[in-house]
C-alpha cells in the first residue's frame, strides 16, 4: 500500500467514525448527548446502538456483495438491487412469513428468524443463478440489467398478489419492511446477523486471487491457474448470503450495492481488489450511516424510509458516473 492509498484510507476511516457518531447521536427523533451513553439509557442501548451496528453490517454486506457481483459478471453496473437479487430475497421472505404464520414457526425466536434468513438467502441465490444462466446467452451489459429489472418486476408482482390476500397486520409489516429499515433489528437479531455477515466478509479474504483473476475473464483466469467455475460458485454463494442476510433483517435496500464499488474505483484508481474489498466495506457502512442520520433528521418527528435516501443518493450517482466515466 503506498502513501496515497494510506491517506485515502485514513480519510475514509475518519468519515466512518464521524458517521457512526452522527448515527448514534442524531439517528432518531431526539438528539442524544454523550452523557446519555454512559448511563443505562434504554433508547441508546436498545434502539440507537442496534440500528447503528445494523447500518454498518448492512452497508458493508451490500457493498461487498455488489463488488463481487460486478466482478463475476464483469459488469460495472451490476448490483444486488438492480439485478433483482434483493427482490428474489424479498419474495422468499414474504412467502416464508405467510407460510411461517400458518405453521407457527415464529413462536421460537431463533427458529423463526433463521427461517426468514434461510428463505432470503435461498431467494437471492436462486435469482443470482438464473441471472448467471441468462448472462451466458446475452453479451450486452445493458440487456442483462434490463433482465434483472424484469426479474424484480416479476418478484414484485408476485409479492403484490401475496400482499393482496394477506391479513391487514401482515400487510402492514410487509409494506414497511419492503421500504427498507435499519430500525427493526434488535440486539437479539444482531447475534445472528453480525457473526454470519462477518464470517462471509472474512471468507472473501480467501478469494483474493480468484477475484483478481476473474477481472481477466474466464479463459485467462483459468490459464493463470484459477478454478473458474469453483471460485465463481463460492463467490456467488457468499454474495447471495450477504444480500439475503441483509434483506432478511433490513428489507431490500437500494443502490448501496451498485454505487459503492463504482465510487471505490473512482477514489482508488487501482485494479487491486483487496483494496476495493476494504474500501467498499468502509464506504458502504459510512454511506448507510449517513443516510440513516439524514433520514431521521430531515423531518424531526418522523423517520423517513432509508430507501428513499439511498435512492436519492445512489441513482443520480450511477447516472452521473455513466456519463462521466466510460471505463469505471
Amino acid at each position: 500500500m503506498n502513501s496515497k492509498t494510506a491517506i485515502k484510507f485514513s480519510v475514509l476511516l475518519l468519515l466512518f467514525v464521524l458517521s457512526c457518531a452522527l448515527s448514534l447521536l442524531f439517528g432518531g427523533s431526539e438528539t442524544m448527548h454523550l452523557s446519555d451513553i454512559t448511563s443505562q439509557d434504554f433508547i441508546f442501548w436498545q434502539i440507537r446502538f442496534p440500528k447503528t451496528i445494523t447500518a454498518i453490517i448492512a452497508g458493508s454486506a451490500l457493498a461487498a456483495a455488489g463488488l463481487i457481483l460486478q466482478i463475476i459478471f464483469r459488469n460495472p453496473l451490476a448490483g444486488p438491487y438492480v439485478l433483482g437479487i434483493s427482490s428474489g430475497a424479498s419474495l422468499m421472505v414474504a412467502l416464508s412469513i405467510l407460510a411461517g404464520n400458518s405453521f407457527h414457526v415464529f413462536s421460537d425466536f431463533f427458529i423463526g428468524k433463521s427461517f426468514i434468513v434461510v428463505s432470503a438467502i435461498s431467494g437471492s441465490f436462486l435469482v443470482t443463478l438464473l441471472i448467471l444462466l441468462i448472462s451466458k446467452k446475452v453479451n450486452s451489459n445493458v440487456i442483462l440489467l434490463l433482465i434483472g429489472l424484469m426479474f424484480s418486476q416479476i418478484c414484485g408482482a408476485i409479492q403484490t398478489a401475496l400482499e393482496y390476500f394477506s391479513d391487514p397486520n401482515s400487510l402492514k409489516s410487509f409494506v414497511i419492511w419492503g421500504m427498507g429499515s435499519l430500525a427493526n433489528t434488535t440486539n437479539k437479531d444482531l447475534l445472528l446477523f453480525v457473526p454470519l455477515a462477518v464470517l462471509c466478509l472474512a471468507s472473501l479474504l480467501f478469494f483474493i486471487k480468484p477475484i483478481n483473476a476473474l477481472l481477466l475473464g474466464q479463459n485467462y483466469a483459468q490459464n493463470i491457474g484459477i478454478n473458474f467455475k469453483q471460485s465463481r460458485f463460492y463467490l456467488i454463494l457468499i454474495s447471495s448470503v450477504l444480500t439475503g442476510l441483509t434483506t432478511a433483517f433490513c428489507g431490500p435496500i437500494a443502490f448501496v450495492g451498485i454505487a459503492v464499488p463504482i465510487l471505490s474505483r473512482m477514489i482508488f484508481k487501482t485494479s487491486k481488489q483487496q483494496i476495493h474489498l476494504l474500501s467498499t466495506v468502509l464506504l458502504g457502512s459510512t454511506i448507510l450511516l449517513f443516510a440513516d442520520a439524514l433520514c431521521n433528521s430531515l423531518l424531526l418527528q418522523v423517520s423517513l424510509p432509508i430507501n428513499m435516501i439511498t435512492t436519492f443518493i445512489g441513482a443520480p450517482l450511477v447516472i452521473y458516473l455513466m456519463f462521466k466515466n466510460k471505463h469505471w
Binding site: 464483469r74 477481472l215 491457474g225 487501482t270 487491486k272 471505463h327 469505471w328
Partner: peptide
Amino acid sequence: IGGFNLTTFDVVAAGQM
C-alpha cells in the same frame, strides 16, 4: 478484456499469479 481500472502493468502482472 478491460475495465475495472486494469492497466497494462496489472495485466502483465497477472502472468505471475
